[in-house]
Write a protein that binds this DNA or RNA. Structure first.
Lengths: 121, 121, 121, 121
DNA sequence: GTGGTCTAGACCACG
DNA sequence: GTGGTCTAGACCACT
């Protein structure tokens, strides 16, 4: 698990954690059944509060990406490749929808968006 | 001026205001020298506090999109079409950069991004 | 009389007017007894409110730079070259004192101040 | 942190605060990472409103002198000595430019300015 | 505990 | 009439 958190980012830390672990799961970097580090350990390693880690883990569980076995820990959910792809697309499209309406409000055409996007991607 | 504010949005009200007016200015819907409604009037019309309006107006001024004349009101800045285009692109690219790194973290290719974007645009 | 006013300046208009006329009087550009334009005319020429002009004129009179003859108008005061120089220095030194304490608060030495000042003067 | 605020000053309180803290940071009196007092505490100690403190803090953040970590506090930004010097000079020169044009408008020579400045510094 | 947002309302300077 | 400043106090999100 490779996590990079930023204190100064506008995004809350628990969400940065959630997004990065989500991405790693849905990119197949973390396989089904993989055991996430215990909350306390993760908190120490990342230098953040236990509460913050817990919040991220909860969000992951709510999204069906991990499951908790009481007394044993948290594990990456069993997801078929199709399910992973679908969840990934859901997350991508949600973000994309917000961006798209933002671009549209400025009167930017889809062609322009694609052109700019190619430059910075 | 056509403004639609959402109380339930994740975005603070003053920022929604800022973005929508920015968009209208940079889309050439509000011409240079156009007089924005007085903050008190805008506050009443939008059903929000004067201070919230002021915060949005301040941000617009800091962005160089309007200028304030004490005792007279706030006016859309004199911007050449080029300047408008540049400022618009700055705002678009800022948002786009955030999105792009998000897409990348999920391992999405630029082709896939463009494909999905075309669908929902 | 050559006056340049800025709407967007942080300084109020009446003070810009006051400072510029003061400067012209103390620079000997306006000789003693010179008749200032009537308030109404000045207001029209400068595109500002009569009240604003009046405020500047009052300040000039309070500073002893002009005097008013009811029904006749305002005139540049009779000042000896020495008096002009002294008043000029008063105004300069007042401003300079404010700047100096500002520079000092940043720990800038007098040598540094002079060096920077030479560059931009 | 040593702050002296004046109610009677022409400068707004939040700006006095901003300038004094800026000066202390750029004079190296406050080192990188130093934790500013919480806005509530600062407000009580200075006898002013929380919002006034916040306004000063916001301006400091916009100037890149401090950064905010929500839920943790505000900290002096990591600035190299060079960056500090540059920012200091920017602030000094901005003030100096205003003064210089004021002096010039009165026809004062650079030599005279330096002479007067040496006396009062 | 921290900062972030929003509110209502007062007072002043400027035009 | 305009915006600029300051106030007191509430509620929420994050740690």
């Amino acid at each position: 698990m490779n996590i990079a958190l930023s204190n100064t980012s506008e995004k809350p830390i628990y969400q940065q954690l959630f997004e990065q672990i989500s991405a790693q799961i849905l990119k197949d970097e973390l396989e089904s059944g993989y055991s996430l580090p215990p909350i306390r350990q993760a908190a120490v390693e990342l230098g953040i509060s236990i509460i913050t880690v817990k919040k991220a883990w909860e969000e992951l569980e709510r999204s069906g990406l991990i499951y908790t076995v009481t007394g044993k820990g948290c594990f990456v959910a069993e997801l078929s490749p199709d399910e992973r792809l679908q969840k990934r697309n859901e997350m991508i499209i949600k973000q994309m929808g917000d961006s798209a309406s933002y671009y549209k409000s400025f009167g930017v055409t889809i062609e322009e968006v694609i052109e700019l996007l190619k430059k910075i991607y």
